[in-house]
Amino acid sequence: MRGVTAAANSPLRILLVEDSDLLLGVIGEMIDEIDGVELSGAAQGETAALAQLNGTKVDLAIVDLELAEGSGLGLLRQLRSDPGRFGGSRVVVFSNHAHAAIQRQCRALGAEAFFDKSEGVEALIDFVEDAAREAAAGSR
């Protein structure tokens, strides 16, 4: 892949917010395979995710809407209300809630993209790859 050399310098740090252990594993592996990406953390609830975003630098948060505690929309709201505090991470939503109203709401709350868990995996991977390339280009 083109970004291999750049990625080695500054990988795209990704936080995965997902309530299912199984999916956390599957998606984590999938993301981890992408060049120039580093899975910097995982969270299963809103509060845990906020703590991670607050404590470490995260470039991209991949957020599921349905969480073990709190919700993805709640997380988006928090990030939007205080962008400086959470390091201004980019956020995309990866969820089963494919409803247009939800997608609109997510975008209104600052999510860059919405990917359907069942049909949008490839698009998510493309998005992450693009983001990794952009990050590498930016850091060069």
Binding site: L23, G25, I27, S118
Partner: peptide
């Protein structure tokens, strides 16, 4: 989760 994991 099972179905989604399988699909992924």
């Amino acid at each position: 989760a099972l179905l989604t994991a399988a699909k992924l």
